[in-house]
């Protein structure tokens, strides 16, 4: 058996747990594991404040802070702005046309039961910005 970890995982948001009920912008309810790319796109189209941006994964590194964290660098939107986020390795991102992906999908599946693939450089994730950001 694999060695047991004594590190307590930091809490992830509850809505990523398999079976969580998500409300789309048109009021429709779906389970988190059933969400499709179109659900996010259509919800953003309805939204008056939010718009979807494409965020391409440029780099994935281990965090200096903790082995439980990773630093993911994205190139965001048409201006390809560089944004880095430090997240738990099991934190899921939604990849266009693919679905939930994380730096450590085994851990995501173990902790959340959320079906998940490996987040890789070049993946295009769904992210949000404000529509009227000036």
């Amino acid at each position: 058996p694999p060695p047991s970890s004594t590190v307590a995982p930091p809490a992830l948001p509850p809505y990523f747990i398999k079976g969580s009920i998500i409300q789309l912008a048109d009021g429709e309810l779906k389970r988190v594991e059933d969400l499709k790319t179109e659900d996010f796109i259509q919800s953003a189209e309805i939204s008056s404040e939010l718009k979807i941006d494409s965020s391409t994964v440029e780099r994935i590194e281990g965090s200096h802070t903790s082995p439980n964290f990773a630093v993911v660098q994205f190139s965001v939107g048409e201006h390809r702005a560089q944004v880095s986020v430090e997240v738990l390795v099991e934190y899921p991102f939604f990849v266009f046309g693919q679905g939930w992906s994380s730096c450590c999908p085994d851990r995501t599946t173990q902790l959340l039961e959320l079906p998940c693939t490996k987040l890789s450089v070049g993946d295009v994730c769904i992210s949000l910005t404000l529509k009227n950001l000036k």
């Binding site: 948001p13 509850p14 809505y15 009920i21 409300q23 309810l29 965020s55 994205f74 944004v83 991102f93």
Partner: peptide, 25 residues
Amino acid sequence: NVEPRSVPVFPWHSLVPFLAPTQSD
């Protein structure tokens, strides 16, 4: 009989990271 439980419902945008680049006009 099983009492129906109230299940939390989360808005779709909770699940999407807010990667807002700084923009200059």
